[in-house]
Design a protein around this nucleic acid. Structure first.
Lengths: 221, 221
DNA sequence: AAATATTTTTAGATTAATCTAAATATATTT
DNA sequence: AAATATATTTAGATTAATCTAAAAATATTT
């Protein structure tokens, strides 16, 4: 299945919108997401449907097909691997890499992707804390959610902080909790929502609800 | 100056053809190089001329302009840097990287190029032995030529071998001459064309004309 | 220099991706 | 359920990049 650049981008948007909402994706929603006009979307979905990467009936919205999902996940995989490369190897900040990865994700070479993946040591998460699907489209960690959403015995990996409060960052530094730290929830105190956790360094500690709400984690198998 | 992908590829071809021959580039030559029809070339050169990146008069062939040359060199720089990346970091062979670099060269981000250049330790030559222009479009080594073309006192850097004869490769291995070896010509014996050279390891040795003809070097400042 | 061959350009079509404006289908309100 | 509003599609244009076929310019040969 050979797709053009524009088709790949539509497919990616359809995949993301499908994941967010539950049912089919509306023409208007897609138009907004693609920053284009509904008329253009109507045209494009007809083409994509023709190629079998989406299911589409006039006026009924769009659903991604099996092959479509495979392609979308391959593009997402490339995007997130390149983001890891840009941050880990080239020294970019995580908030500078999106536009470049948006270009790099369209490079066609399965061998390149596998070599890059190996070079980066098979990362499972990108610098934004989003999970990277493997070459078969399987995610090995969940998406980024607040630590405070985890339940007792859940395992997670720190994937981000939703605040740039210096005090918080210094505190996290002090207790040695940072991006990539793996942890397990030992206990949650019902009264104040504070959590007793154990980190990958076998250290036990308490995290207040206030802090847990600022920390993003991805669930770990 | 914003160019489309196709325009960038034409410009690159025009640059290379200009360097090879001396005068302007003919429509037919460009068509052959781009694997397209002369009619399409006529159209494209009109557009490129419009944008000021080439000088063009009907029936008179094409010459690259100042700004055109700058753009072409920037694309070539990116192509060659990515080739170094693919070979040095991802473990590709030098003969597998062209098609991938052909895609990567169109990624737009000056910052990315500079970071990549630094990550690769500012290489001056790609894996094929071709020189990499710096960000101002300046080459720091010459193009790959046979070692046998050098004159006494010339300095060069080994950039390739135009043969895959096992015996030759083993011999080069033995005398420790390989890709990247820097050398200076001490003397050339007129009778048989053999060369006395000194390598960057301060070793002196003789190279027969037969061997020198198989070795590619880039002249060094 | 006239005839012939070659090169180059123009004219008219085609495809992908977009747009605006108009038409049609679906959803919501009274 | 009729009227109104919103969402979606169609019709017709536009731009970039290509093509084939025909016309025009330049080069070569006799």
């Amino acid at each position: 299945m050979k797709l053009t650049l524009a088709e790949e981008n539509y497919l990616k948007a359809i995949y993301h919108l499908s994941e967010a909402g539950d049912g089919g994706v509306s023409t208007n929603a897609l138009a907004e997401s693609m920053e284009t006009k509904p008329a253009s979307v109507s045209d494009m979905v007809r083409r994509l449907s023709q190629k079998g990467v989406i299911d589409y009936q006039k006026y009924k919205g769009v659903n991604i097909s099996k092959t479509g999902k495979t392609i979308a996940l391959s593009v997402i995989r490339k995007h997130r691997l390149w983001e890891v490369f840009l941050v880990e190897k080239l020294g970019f900040n995580w908030d500078e890499v999106h536009d470049i990865a948006e270009q790099l994700e369209h490079i066609q070479s399965p061998l390149l992707v596998e070599r890059l993946d190996k070079f980066l040591d098979h990362p499972v998460m990108d610098p934004h804390g989003d999970p990277i699907p493997d070459k078969n489209g399987v995610f090995h960690v969940g998406p980024a959610i607040p630590l405070s959403d985890l339940k007792s015995k859940d395992k997670g990996i720190i994937s981000g902080v939703t605040s740039d409060d210096q005090k918080l960052l210094q505190y996290l530094d002090k207790i040695k909790v940072g991006l990539g730290t793996k942890l397990i929830i030992l206990e949650i105190e019902e009264f104040d929502g504070s959590m007793k956790i154990e980190t990958d360094k076998k250290e036990e500690m308490f995290i207040s609800k206030k802090t847990a709400e600022q920390l993003l984690v991805s669930k770990w198998p």
